[in-house]
Design a binder for these strands. Structure first.
Lengths: 219, 219, 219, 219
DNA sequence: GATGAATGAGCCTTCATTCAT
DNA sequence: AATGAATGAAGGCTCATTCAT
């Protein structure tokens, strides 16, 4: 777990700042940077608009801070795992951890998608600090390991991208699938199933024939 | 197919209308409904703002018309396939056709994602007229057919959703992956690979070992 | 009556022009010059907006022409009477004739009021060509004739103004009184009564006890 | 009387609001609701347009508030008089009080006329809350009292309407009569004369035969 | 530190007017 | 003579942002 004991008593100002960020995340996720109204964020945070401007110099910077606040835990996660062991097990655990984090902040996935679709100014930062390192490392690992048809080296980017689609996309497109299937993709059960689904896919791609006794029965 | 020979000479007005729709699709895809500036759309279409309002009563209705124009071909596609044969081959062909259509209109995927993320007013229409019927049918077919572990019935929604992620998401997230991998996901090669990847996944899920002679060679 | 036999066959263009003027009068009366929409006038006249601009160079000039068209008969009326006999009988007849004309074009009274209230550009023209000559002559005549208390010379402008209020105001304020009294001031009966009321006022102000046999029967 | 001592120090916001209302009354009176430019009102009030919209949600509602602000004193006046004594004296005093109020706010008469002519949305409210009660009561009183020819019951609405014409119309048509007679109807002298004129008319209509020595010779 | 009040800039929309057919 | 198509110039209204208290 992360250090929860350090920040013992948050200042009143820190609380206000946090409330604003929380409110902003929701509004940005729902309406996008352009559609978001500062007034609405301030109202949702329970503060005056002028107060909001004491904490953040502009709507754009607030938006950026919201994104930063969202990736930071993911970066921590990645670093944690990148120093740990590799292999299918580790991959599965990373996927699980990411899914858990995204489930805790469903708005973040939407923010990332909005940023990507609109080619926002924070996109390249996102690519550089998280998606880039993670996906490239995963692709390398995929290539180091893959052997059997039908998978081959050229598929690496697609495969790792697929996991982004299945994780972030799961939360970003949740409203669509809720409408289509009548049940909420963000519910614990669905998230758990989606996580399991991704783990299954990993195992399907890397049969791990060498390790007897493990992961029997899948194809 | 539908009459393509009747509308030989489009009216000047029809051309203008089409130009506006085309321009609007691009702007909406890049900035979302809220962020889109009518002025920018008009400029991109090469018409005066007032002209735009001769053809469309409001920005919102223009947006809706753009979405309608995007789904209609997909609906046609679905109907065409729903009356044809079923099976893995057909599924693969549908995936291919959809990918081809999405590749031809990369903006449309973005529009769908934006609509889903922002829970726009057209989302339920999208769910009702296309995603709903298609995905539910696909899920049923998946369940009719699946047998072997690790796949089971409860996975059906996730699996069909996965194909949405891999197709629409491929185009919607293109800017991110371009940044990450340094090459353009919308390029013909990548689209072809992604299509093949999805077909591979289908075959992996439905091994079809029993039916000799059927569905041969579709890879 | 006025020459109706001269304009035997009006040109098609003349008819169009007349239709536009007629429509414009209604729209201007209801919404004022500023509030009037050229499109609405054209629609009411059953012509294209561009057509309207063939007949009238601008909305303002159309407005002015409408006003001109409205005063011209009144000017004729005044000239007719100014060359005729004077006296109470004549005054009563003029009032009756004016009321009849205003009743036939209830919109015109409104236009005059709108022009006066907004101090429109045609107001001084109205004052110079009609209200001025008529009211000043009437005031002079009032002074020539009045004798008995409580009326005295200084009241002349007020008295003649009163007749403007009671005639033009009757039609201009018709919507208010319709609302208040539940019956339509523009109806024939009410107009007749109002005319009679004004005649009574005239007689009250100028008792004419000396002239036996005069002013008989006009009540 | 109402508490005039309570609101000792008006808020800054209250002052701004009042400034806007004052400015709006002038602009609306001159140009009508349709012709009025919000920008012009704001400029006249010395505030930014956005500020205006903090106080009033729309131009229409501002207009309505201006009208309300104008009638309220008249309603107070009416209530005051309706609980007092009746008779010619009282009628004369009411007329005088109304004239005084209208003279203090000459724009209000114009607003009423514009609303009546354009059959605005506030007209029926005006009719219900002020003109209706007042005129109907006056008409009843007229009928209760009148006896002698040439006045008879059916004239009641016309007679009370006449007083509206002579009071409100006096101010609404002021620009016209200024142009015609070369002197300003809104000047104190003219207003005083017009008030006296109306009082004379009242006395003419109700000779008050009981009081010997008064108003001899008219009828 | 927080807020009520205010504003410049800009956005969606409409309007009077023109042009090509 | 008439019209469908198009436009420059506002107009009403909102928004991100600032200032005085």
């Amino acid at each position: 777990m992360l250090e929860k004991t350090e920040k013992v008593i948050p200042t009143r100002a820190e609380l206000t700042r946090e409330r604003i960020l929380e409110a902003a995340e929701g509004v940005f996720a729902r309406t996008g940077l352009n559609g978001a109204r500062v007034r609405e964020i301030a109202d949702a945070a329970g503060v005056n608009v002028a107060t909001l401007y004491i904490y953040f110099p502009s709507k754009n910077e607030l938006h950026e801070t919201v994104l930063e606040r969202g990736v930071r835990p993911l970066i921590d996660l990645m670093e944690e795992f990148s120093s740990g062991p590799r292999g299918i097990e580790a991959a599965g655990q990373l996927v699980g951890a990411v899914m858990k984090h995204l489930a805790a902040r469903p708005n973040f996935s939407r923010l990332v998608y909005l940023e990507a679709i609109s080619e926002g100014s924070y996109l390249s930062q996102l690519a550089r600090t998280w998606f880039g390192p993670l996906l490239n490392r995963a692709a390398r690992e995929f290539n180091d390991r893959t052997v059997s048809a039908p998978w081959d080296e050229s598929l690496a980017p697609l495969v790792v991208a697929a996991f982004v689609h299945l994780s972030f996309g799961h939360f970003a497109l949740a409203p669509l699938f809720r409408e289509v299937f009548g049940s909420n993709p963000i519910s614990e059960e669905w998230v758990a199933q989606q996580t399991k689904f991704m783990a299954t896919l990993i195992r399907q791609m890397f049969p791990e024939p060498a390790e007897p006794g493990a992961d029997r029965g899948n194809d």
